[in-house]
Design a protein around this nucleic acid. Structure first.
Lengths: 183, 207
DNA sequence: ATCTTACTTTACAAAGC
DNA sequence: GCTTTAAAAAGTAAGAT
């Protein structure tokens, strides 16, 4: 069977800089920043290119969201950290970055009868009164998929693009096995 | 042994107090929703099961009562929407839905999604529509299901559109506003659904 | 009536309430 | 559990035009 094509839509990555940060001093010196301790302990910093948003914490850890590929996510983190380093030269050049979550979309190419899928497919939740998508939890790879009547799919929880691709691939194969979609 | 005895009494006392509170809460919500006694009993069974399996931890009694009622309504085929449940209880729609999913998962209750058909009798009677119109609406809904026109759509919207179409076809016309208000959806939703239904099913008539 | 904006669901990290 | 961020899917809603 031809491999299903997936499109990575969002990547969440975290980084540990190894040195605590003085947010109250850093915040006013940066552009595109939001910092409201009452609201959220992190400083929100947005980049236009790559279009991402970073959450920076006093502990020296940060979270980067919005990138469409791992390269951009890493690039965005370095651009963000370089900006902070201008205000705090003590920040190490090397630090750990970890991809925490990848969200991808795909199209099975066939419409789905969700009420039938809900009956035959295991580990699903389908509550059209609340949300139009059917939630399917796969154990291997450990990802969660949202299946729609149109045949479009969203896969989240993956750590790598391959995991997301495999998740969609397995889902499609399982649906074919159960005669829920044609081959 | 004495201390253990006292402790047991104290705990069972609290347990019974909680159960009494839960049941009165359940009665209050049920009467506001106009539910038959059979549904209240079904809900109390779900609630007791939740207690026996210690599923109340970290959750409010009101929330579990509301979720038990929601589940019972669905099981008994006299559905109430999450909005209707949330309106009579002091629990948000989000929490009722979340608790419902938790209970059904933990108690291994597997209820199929509510069929639009289950809403037909209630909506029709509130609209004073005849049994003939109800039958026609059900026929339309069945056709819609066979043609994949219900996947992902809210059951109330589908039921509302089917009733609206049936009322027009059989000369008991109701306005979209009337149907929308009773079904708890907007006129836009009814319009979207009936366009879909009339275009993809051959109803033979035009509205 | 149609457009725009926004909220529902999924996953995930961060620090603190 | 919540708060904040990002993004997709499709349905529904609300306010504006």
């Amino acid at each position: 069977m031809a491999d299903v094509e997936i499109k990575v839509e969002n990547i969440v990555a975290s980084a540990t800089l190894g040195k605590s940060l003085e947010l109250p001093r850093i915040a006013p010196a940066l552009e595109n920043v939001e910092y409201n301790l009452e609201q959220f302990p992190g400083l929100v910093f947005k980049l236009k290119e790559p279009k991402t948003a970073a959450l920076i914490f006093g502990s020296g850890k940060l979270v980067c969201t919005g990138a469409k590929c791992i390269e951009d996510s890493i690039k965005a983190i370095h651009m963000t950290v370089d900006k902070i380093r201008e205000l705090d030269p003590e920040i190490p050049e090397e630090f750990e970055i970890k991809i925490q979550n990848i969200v991808a979309s795909a199209n099975l190419g066939k419409v789905l009868n969700l009420e039938a899928v809900a009956l035959d497919l295991e580990n699903t939740e389908y509550e059209p009164e609340q949300f139009p998508g059917l939630v399917y939890r796969l154990e291997d790879p450990k990802v969660v998929l949202l299946l729609f009547g149109s045949g479009k799919v969203v896969c989240t929880g993956a750590k790598t693009a391959d995991q997301a691709q495999l998740g969609v691939q397995k889902t499609k194969e399982r649906l074919i096995e159960l005669y829920l979609i044609e081959e | 042994r004495l201390r253990k005895w006292q402790r047991k009494i104290r705990i069972s006392g609290a347990t019974e107090r909680n159960l009494a509170f839960a049941l009165s809460e359940l009665d209050r919500d049920s009467s506001r929703l106009g539910l038959p006694r059979s549904v209240r009993e079904s809900a109390s069974v779900v609630y007791r099961n939740a207690v026996e399996n210690k599923l109340i931890r970290g959750r409010s009694i009101e929330g579990v009562v509301a979720a038990s009622l929601y589940a019972a309504c669905r099981r008994c085929k006299v559905p109430r929407t999450l909005d209707e449940i949330a309106d009579v209880s002091r629990v948000s729609k989000k929490e009722v839905g979340r608790t419902y999913r938790f209970l059904t998962r933990e108690l291994h209750i597997r209820l199929p999604p509510t069929s639009p058909i289950d809403y037909v009798p209630r909506f029709a009677s509130e609209l004073n529509l005849s049994g003939v119109v109800q039958s026609k609406a059900i026929e339309i809904i069945n056709q819609a299901m066979e043609n994949g026109l219900t996947s992902g759509r809210g059951p109330t919207g589908v039921a509302a559109a089917a009733l609206y179409i049936a009322s027009v076809l059989l000369g008991e016309r109701k306005t979209q506003r009337d149907v929308a208000d009773i079904a708890g959806v907007t006129e836009v939703t009814i319009r979207n659904r009936y366009k879909e239904l009339t275009e993809q099913l051959d109803m033979g008539v035009n509205l």
